[in-house]
Write a protein that binds this DNA or RNA. Structure first.
Lengths: 136, 136
DNA sequence: CTATTTGCAAACCCTTTGCAAAAAT
DNA sequence: ATTTTTGCAAAGGGTTTGCAAATAG
């Protein structure tokens, strides 16, 4: 579903600042909050950091946006897309997306059976010493 | 490995305050930092919150202790034990441990093959609307 | 026209830091 | 004897809040 429909469904107004946040997060570069802020300022030089925080909180409440705990440095931001896991590089701090596979879906099913309930979000991160780029 | 050996290996002194933190985390009740602080004060009424923070940072650096991002409310604390995943209850905020199974190990192997590297920590959390206790 | 959002500044945490005294090795 | 740790108080930094003006629906 596109961002605008998602906002409308949640009775949220479509403001340029809000759309800019979503557009940047849709790149899936997983910025930290201050990196996002710097990026938005390119389009909205006068945007307030408070506006960014307020929007992030609103978008988190709808489940559209969430934070990734990297266990090192600042948390990174992500927007919802089809189920995916994250690879976190300990060296450079980058976050990479990886798809779920049958094995992971099978574990999810196993868990749901075990707890007799539905998993509404499955958060999977693998921390590695070096990523592709850091291996050089 | 027991806590004392782990501390010695990392050239950390075995202080009563530090041991109290580890003893409490070993219960795997996943307290937040302030819940941990309240708990420690039962044993050390005069302990400083700064001491708790300093110890948590030191213990995180060794990989012994880490934070769980619950995506709601404050982060929770955990100590290392054999590979396990977490179930996070959206209703009450509680964190429960669940074991890895073959399916999850298989996904881990798949990922390691894909990235041609070793996963040093595999962080898996399932968020549910209600836990056992909240279903009532 | 009404309700939400923005931007600013101030307030409010939570976390870290500096330092002297105490404790561990 | 040396080094780390503790506890206190102060500083720091990220996040939230209140409010008037601007904007979206």
């Amino acid at each position: 579903m596109d961002s605008i429909s998602h906002l409308r469904e949640n009775h949220l107004k479509v403001t340029p600042q809000r759309m800019s946040i979503l557009k940047i997060l849709d790149r899936h570069t997983h910025p930290s909050i201050d990196e996002l802020y710097e990026e938005i300022k390119k389009d909205f030089p006068s945007i307030s950091l408070a506006t960014v925080y307020k929007n992030l909180n609103i978008l988190k409440d709808t489940g559209m946006v969430f934070e990734i705990n990297t266990h090192m440095g600042k948390p990174k931001l992500d927007v919802y897309m089809h189920p995916h896991a994250h690879i976190l590089c300990k060296k450079c701090g980058a976050v990479f997306d990886v798809d779920f596979t049958d094995n992971l879906y099978a574990y999810q099913k196993e868990l749901e059976k075990k707890i007799d309930g539905k998993i509404i979000k499955f958060d999977v991160s693998a921390i590695v010493d070096f990523c592709e780029n850091c291996k050089q």
